[in-house]
Design a binder for these strands. Sequence first.
RNA 1: GGGCUCAUGGCUCAGUUGGUAGAGCGCUUCAUUCACAUUGAAGAGGUCAGAGGUUCGAGUCCUCUUGGGCCCACCA
Length: 743
Amino acid sequence: MDKVYDHTKIEEKIYEQWEKGGYFQPEIHPNGKPYCIVLPPPNANGALHFGHAMFTVEDILIRYHRMLGDSALWLPGTDHAGIETQFVFEKELAKSGKSRFDFSREELYQMIKDYVDKNRGGIQDQLKKLGFSLDWSREKFTLDPAIVELVVATFKKMYAEKLVYRDYRLVNYCTRDGTSFSDLEVTYEERQDPLYYIKYGPLVLATTRPETKFGDTAVAVNPNDDRYKKYIGQTIDIETVLGSAKIRVIADDFVDPAFGTGVVKVTPAHDFTDYEVGKRHDLPLKQVIGFDGKLNHYAGKFEGMYVKKAREAIVLEMQEKGLIDHIDTAYMHRIGICYKCKTVLEPLPLEQWYVNVQNLKKQAITVIKEGKLEVVPKNFENPLFQWLENLRDWNISRQNVWGIRIPVWYEVDDNNVFTVAFIDKKSNHHQGKLSDLLQEGFDFEEITKGLQRVISPITAKVVFEEQKEKGKQYLPETDTFDTWFSSGQWPTVTLKTSKPGDFEKFYPTAVLETAYDILKAWVSRMVMFGIYLTHEPPFKVALFHGIVNDPLGKKMSKSKGNVVNPLELVGQYGADAVRFALVYGNATGADQSLSYTKLDAARKFTNKIWNMARFLEMKKPEGMGKLKKINLHELGSFAISQPDKDMVEATKVFVREITKYLDSYQFNLAAERVYEFAWHTFADKYIEEVKNRVDEKSYTVLANIYSVILHLLHPIMPFVTEEIYQAMKLSSEPLIVSSWPEA
RNA sequence: GGGCUCAUGGCUCAGUUGGUAGAGCGCUUCAUUCACAUUGAAGAGGUCAGAGGUUCGAGUCCUCUUGGGCCCACCA
């Protein structure tokens, strides 16, 4: 044995051996208790980061349960990550001077698919480097045809039960990325913007968005505000930059008399609150901002200007006309921005598909309250409840192509106006009303062939593929599902498509382990879908880990340039040390800062373990035959000297402690205890004591206790323990499938 | 505005049914061709943010205060 442990000589060899041996497959223990964890699917196009390195926790659980004799399955898979991936691809595309508007839907999809296929496999190799005992024979991808089929089936079932529906309402729309987002995907930013006090006839009102005034369909005041009671219900004359106009004054409780002047302009097409107000008072929706982010014909001479420019121009002209009372320049407020490109999101009215979550969320809450789903650590329960309770219907339409197309078609007839965008035979882009384009001479086939986008009226007849009738014309829905619509069904769709019998055997899964930051986006959806599809939650325990920050405690981010690649650390310190450092001294669910001193300590520990093995190798009494494997119960009576007997007893306590810690998800305590016991109890005290009196009996005790340590440490540090265990030749089977010590 | 969370030795952090404070790194002194200097032995160092309460007993439970962090929410 080398004097110093060199992980670079060991890790790859051991992983290959494990994989070839089929030890990652649950069939290795065909009659064991089923124990399944489904890996949170990483982005198929992405690279490994610390969020993935934290899956160490899952490997610890899987390896522990495999050693307990369970039929342990850790099922890997990757996600197509719709918007994320398309965003990255479009940035690549831009380098060659192209954009998504230059290609039809099908062309663009194929290009992204090729791009992802080229990059796939990277993440798998990286997960292997961390020693993760994933069953690669069952690997899944969200766009596998079998998975897509099941996701589509869920949609059809929900449609039949009226749990998905189509509606025309305001969405958070990014005019740069050209798609809407769910409420959850909106990020907010604190900004200082001017608050304009503008004159509306006899009234003055405050607004940050004067450019939406062309879409105002009312002015609102609080019903109890004495200042304005006389105007309620009246139509007042106002002066605007486009000349004189009339507008209704309504009363609504939402108006806070203390804010601004207590008067609010109501723009139902461009503000979420106003949209609700508009519905209550039956106000018309007047859309003045288009999906391109520009003002439309309602804005008169300001038509065609981008929102920001238009605001400046309008304010300037209003000042000239004396329509602005005053401006509060120090106004702070929060605005929604696109989480990808930071563009200010526009609330715009659009036809979209929604999931009715009202009943689903109630069942999810009940399941957790009844204890059928345990949340660990428990403090993540409250945020989950709070979020579920406030959950509104879920917008699942995304205007990007990289994803699963919402599987519906719209029947084309004369009564409906369809807006389409397409690429013609000569690769030119066209956009407009279907009827106009047909009149211009494009035929229906050419349009559908080069189709980019269809906006179908809410009144259009919806059919599925198999419901299409001969002789009728249909336009497809061009939107895709929100990525979470498919990943939300991950535990069911993976197990149903992996190997026959998997679903029956492994569902519901034992544990779902993930970072707490996708508790709402992913975990809650899986619970809702799981209950909907199978009448029980998809996992018994939802276990959360924290975020790994940079050494200074700052969140790692590309823009800050403080991202550390875990694979570099694996190369430097070894996978065992990286894994150990990630769980040691870090409470379950808590954030941590990357610590190089901890990594160093962990590496020293692997070396210490290694040198214990060297010591045993050197101290083996001459002429001693094959080392016997003796379990702890028998070892107590096997030992002769009191120190040996005491050590056996201490080891039994140690085994019970580690077992308890792993059963209760206290990985940090397990790591700390095994470190303490191996180094300070076993090496510093016991080895020192036994050193000069080694005979065959005491050597057997020593080696067997060391073997117990290797077993208990194996889930956390699989490589070094496996290498040593095999070298000791205590058993013919490798450590990975060796039994957990009994005490 | 609501919720969650953190404040423990110089630094980074553990401490889950409440029972006289722990680790890693750093520091001090000493040892050592011993399996391991990626070592061993001994040691210094904390009124567990502050105030009050419950209790025989609180870092651990309750209330409040102060100061960080995070998440959520339709005040224009």
